[in-house]
């Protein structure tokens, strides 16, 4: 995954204009809890899935549910596993315990990511919710990835996923939507997705009665395609009529070192 690498500042041709834009992004993020990312063209369905995966990994790390970024964790876990196999008895019980907690979180996250891929191959997904802590009717934190205004097309006519990710994360970090200096407690993260009623997904459970919680601040990351850059029409509100909420049957529990 290249999501986190995108934090690096990107040289801009017109610094003055850039600063103005950033100010606006920060203001909207702070006042409305909303970050708009407008891509200059169409994207692919697989691209959408990557956006969601990378945002999920990023939020888990930024909201202190993972001690390192996902990619760092996978790397260190592999390294540790190799050394564990060599001299297992030298490790203390507590190290083993930490290792297993980390392993469990990674497995949970891995499973959710895989199932998201399956889902995206079955249905268009206009909205994704990440609910942290509390219950699904009253979570502690709520993040929405809104992709209703993305225009989809085939791979040859679409923007490259990597350049979209770079733009996405640059905007996210400028907006400073996710950082909080206060320490955050570990809490379970639940993923909900809006998908077509008849898409036939098996792993996610339909939640026909679910309504997006309104009494908690909803932080929205809205992805869209610049309409002037796309030939294809944008989806209409009526297109989402037969879309219902599905909930991942497991939560991601997170851990700290």
């Amino acid at each position: 995954g290249g999501g986190i690498k995108a934090i690096l500042p990107i040289p801009s041709t017109n610094p003055a204009r850039k600063i103005c834009e950033s100010d606006e992004v920060i203001r909207r993020a702070q006042e409305e809890g909303c970050v708009n990312v407008v891509f200059p063209g169409t994207v692919t369905q697989e691209g959408c899935c990557r956006f969601v995966s990378e945002i999920l990994k990023c939020i888990l790390y930024q909201r202190q549910q993972l001690p390192m970024t996902y990619d760092q964790l996978v790397y260190s876990q592999k390294k540790q596993q190799a050394s564990l196999q060599v001299n297992r008895k030298h490790y203390h019980c507590s190290v083993d315990m930490d290792w297993r907690k980390c392993q469990q979180t990674l497995q949970e996250l891995e499973e959710v990511l895989q199932q998201l891929e399956v889902l995206f191959s079955l249905s268009r997904v206009p909205r994704v919710l990440l609910l942290m802590g509390g219950s699904i009717v009253l979570p502690k934190e709520l993040y929405e990835i809104n992709m209703e205004a993305l225009v989809l097309a085939g791979g040859d006519q679409s923007l490259r996923v990597s350049s979209c990710l770079r733009q996405l994360f640059r905007t996210l970090f400028v907006a400073d939507l996710l950082s909080d200096t206060r320490p955050v407690r570990l809490m379970p993260t639940t993923v909900l997705v809006l998908a077509h009623r008849d898409c036939g997904v098996g792993w996610f459970r339909p939640k026909l009665q679910f309504k997006v919680p309104t009494r908690v601040k909803n932080q929205i990351i809205a992805l869209s395609s610049d309409p002037s850059a796309c030939k294809e029409p944008r989806a209409d509100r009526s297109d989402w009529q037969d879309y219902v909420w599905f909930q991942a049957p497991m939560t991601i529990k997170g851990f700290s070192n």
Binding site: R205, P206, V244
Partner: peptide, 8 residues
């Protein structure tokens, strides 16, 4: 059933 998406 919990996996059903049928309309009420």
């Amino acid at each position: 059933k919990s996996h059903s998406t049928a309309k009420l």
